[in-house]
Amino acid sequence: MKETKIGDFEETLLLLVGILDKEAYAFKIAEEFESQTSRAVSIGAVHSTLNRLTEKGFLESEMGESTAERGGRRKRIYTITASGQRTLQDSRDFKIALWNQFPAFAGGKLNFNF
């Protein structure tokens, strides 16, 4: 059974994976999350979520190259799958639809540039 719903933290991580592209591995994602949101997060929590997203089929991963800082250990690079991209888009569309129904903001007072 595949979970198709997506949580807020999951969505953020999915986006970060996209932003980081070739550098999308657990440590970097956690760093990026902290710098973008100024909220603390443990690598374990990020890793666990990435794992879950992989199980849901939104992410793929493969082992990348190793560097000296990591004591010669390889890193796992994550990439978004087609299904992951669709879920992100669905999520965004759904929210925009909600925004548009919100009378105070409807009518272009807020500018959404995509």
């Binding site: 591995y25 440590f27 956690a30 690598i43 800082e69 250990r73 890193k75």
Partner: peptide, 14 residues
């Protein structure tokens, strides 16, 4: 083990 130890090492040195 490998990836996690690597990530944590990087975190430690940073």
């Amino acid at each position: 083990a490998e990836e996690v130890l690597g990530d944590l090492d990087e975190k430690f040195y940073s």
